[in-house]
Simulated assay, not measured.
Amino acid sequence: MALRQLVRIRGHEYYLKVHFSYLLLPIAATLLRFYYSTLHINIWGEIVVHARIVEIQQGSPTTKIIKFTTAVSLNFHPGQWVDLYIEIDGNIEIGGYSITSTPLEKNFIELAIKESSYNKVSHFLNYSAKIGQEVELIGGQGDCYYHEDLSHHIVLIAGGIGITPLMSILRFICKTSSDVAVRLLYSASSSEEHIFQTELDDLELEFDQLKCNYWITKEIDTQKNYNFGRIDRDAIGTFVTGNSQDFFICGPSEMIDQSVEILLSLDVKRTSLHFEKWW
């Protein structure tokens, strides 16, 4: 398809034929610039989303809560994780982190990142990251996530930084499914290391379906109603009802193994156990 374009050259008027496709070139260029500034597809066919840090909070003495705005909304399920790519000292480094926010928030993602002396990305994000820092994200990833086909009785068992994917699940259920009961069993080394403690207290007051129980393993705190020690068979057994339930477990590998063994010994079906091992 062509258009007739009137032009004037040295006082004379001429009509030139301009093919319609040429008129689309500026539009196409603009769209491509927008595309590559928001997301692109890597060589493995994964969608890479551009993101920028907009807020950094101290979640615990050893953990930062970092909030990002994303150029486009990330496609993930509650409980999944992302790969985060960031430039450090001129090199692109990668770290994997569970998502703590929910898919309900558009163009936004939140991560809680524990300090690590042997993980370059975690160390950088805890001590050197600044507001405005740009990163790239790939996700959501992982097969351990909440979906609406599961039972209406969800038990979340968290150890330390393992609260992160379970926080996404807990938040999502509270905001979308008033008929789903959630029980949280959350263990940390000290009361200060219970990330999201204030928010969890507020959510428990707001949503009758949510009940939270806490353990600390390395100190005795008389200020709150904490259980001392690890989440053991007696503790887990209290929350096994014999009815249809699904259990999500996240924490150190040894804790996951012990929790799975306990639940199986209490006649919980293996298909009702959901977990992934990170370390």
Rank of each mutant, 00 (worst) to 15 (best):
F68L: 15
S60W: 05
F207Q: 01
Y97F: 14
G90P: 00
H40E: 09
R270L: 06
S253A: 15
R230C: 11
Q258P: 00
I94N: 14
G79W: 08
I109K: 02
E254D: 14
R230K: 11
P103Y: 03
I9N: 06
C212P: 00
P78F: 11
F108V: 08
T271Q: 13
L31D: 00
I220H: 12
G45V: 09
H123M: 07
T238H: 10
S190Q: 05
G142C: 06
L24D: 01
K175W: 05
G90Y: 02
A28Q: 03
L185P: 04
T164H: 05
D232Y: 01
N126V: 12
H77E: 13
Y14A: 14
S122L: 02
G90W: 01
I163C: 06
R171F: 03
I65S: 02
F34D: 14
E276F: 05
I94A: 12
V240C: 04
T62S: 15
Q223H: 10
Y14R: 12
A129D: 05
W278D: 04
A51V: 01
S168G: 10
F20Y: 09
N91F: 08
G251E: 06
E199P: 09
P78E: 11
F68Q: 02
V54Q: 04
I220P: 00
N213E: 10
N91Y: 10
G160N: 02
D221I: 11
G59H: 00
C212M: 04
I56K: 06
Y214R: 07
N119G: 14
E254Q: 14
H147V: 01
D143K: 12
C250K: 03
F207P: 06
I56F: 02
Q258E: 14
N227Y: 12
W279R: 11
K269H: 10
S244K: 13
L25N: 01
W278Q: 03
V54A: 01
K218N: 15
E148A: 15
L210Y: 02
E192L: 12
I195S: 06
Y127F: 13
M255K: 01
C144H: 02
E193G: 01
F248H: 05
D257V: 00
L166H: 03
